[in-house]
Design a protein around this nucleic acid. Structure first.
Ligand SMILES: [Mn+2]
Ligand SMILES: [Mn+2]
Length: 303
DNA sequence: GAAGTAA
DNA sequence: TTACTTCAACGCCAT
DNA sequence: ATGGCG
């Protein structure tokens, strides 16, 4: 039954129904999805290693049912690392940990189009090592979107953090800053909320932090709520479940004005990495404490 | 996608 | 064997 | 406590 065998580093992973079409508009198969993850694994894993991962699965392709899976299945092979993580209000979840190419290939075989990673690592689940702003547009206005991303990047830079940019493959961008693991999610989220609210106050017609869609109107939602325990963000270089198979792609800030959020795809992302490497290669080295940024932000908002 | 049950 | 069903998340916030 | 939201 068209089972393919992929070598991924140390492991050999079987991909069942490798010729099953997952992206009907593009003819992309599950086998090609698995092969994609094998190829980008070195770059992807550098950003995802040691993090609990949730799998956004489409067992019958992207036009079929969507499943968001956290617990590893009983049938998962024993070489996939697991982390038993407490839920906020009791109970636990046994997550897979996104540690190597073979795990990504195995998840692809399970129909996982998009892996979603925690913002913290298994050895310190309560203290995130990244701060994320998820810019979600309500319209196709790229001008406003770029203004928002540039504004957030500039603000973080002025506060003493080092912002990085990623196109999500969907409609927006992520602006992400690496952190020293000194603060809890609650503290980081408070900072994120204050920064986002400040920006929204400066551009009230273009930006908002309102949660309810109805209250956002046509404004861009500065989603700071991703900065919470057990919340996730699409992994860099992950594929999105949309026609063209777009890819969440780390960018240079210089590319913001010329790159659409959905520009890169399974095909171009591989070429991009081969030619230019990973735009976030220095991400970890740019980690900063939130202490001074917190004080500077307090001053900016008048405290 | 995997596993269980009914036919 | 095939056909079919079921299951596979959770935290924050506003109300 | 519930529902929207991502
Ligand atoms: Mn199925
Ligand atoms: Mn988003």
């Amino acid at each position: 039954m068209s089972t393919e065998t992929l070598r991924a580093g140390k492991r050999t992973v079987e991909v069942s129904r490798a010729d099953k079409v997952f992206f009907p508009d593009d003819g992309i198969t599950k086998g090609e999805l698995a092969e994609y993850y094998r190829q980008v694994a070195p770059a992807l894993v550098r950003h995802a290693r040691a993090r609990p991962v949730a799998a956004e699965r489409f067992p019958d392709g992207i036009t079929g049912q969507r499943v968001f899976q956290k617990n590893v299945g009983e049938h998962f092979p024993d070489w996939i690392r697991r982390a038993e993580v407490p839920k906020k209000e009791g109970g636990t979840i046994v997550h897979a940990v996104c540690d190597d190419a073979a795990t990504l290939v195995y998840l692809a075989d399970q129909g996982c189009v998009t892996p979603h990673c925690w913002l913290s690592r298994t050895d310190q689940l309560d203290t995130p090592d990244r701060l994320i702003f998820d810019l979600d547009p309500a319209t196709q206005d790229l001008e406003q979107l770029r203004l928002a991303a540039r504004g957030m990047g500039t603000l973080l830079d002025e506060l003493g953090l080092v912002p990085f940019l990623m196109s999500t493959g969907s409609r927006g961008f992520h602006v992400v800053a690496p952190l020293r693991r000194e603060h809890t999610f609650d503290h980081v989220r408070n900072f994120a909320r204050d920064a986002a609210a400040l920006l929204a106050e400066r551009e009230p017609k273009a930006l908002t932090v309102e949660q309810r869609k109805e209250d956002r109107g046509r404004r861009i939602f500065l989603d700071y709520l991703r900065n919470a325990y057990a919340q996730t963000a699409v992994a860099p270089y992950s594929v999105r479940a949309k026609p063209t198979a777009p890819v969440a792609t780390p960018l240079e800030w210089e590319e913001l004005d010329t790159t659409e959020p959905w520009h890169h795809t399974m095909t171009t992302a591989v070429e991009r990495i081969q030619r230019y490497g990973d735009s976030w290669s220095n991400f970890t080295r740019r980690a900063r404490s939130l202490r001074q940024p917190r004080q500077r932000l307090d001053r900016l908002i008048g405290r």
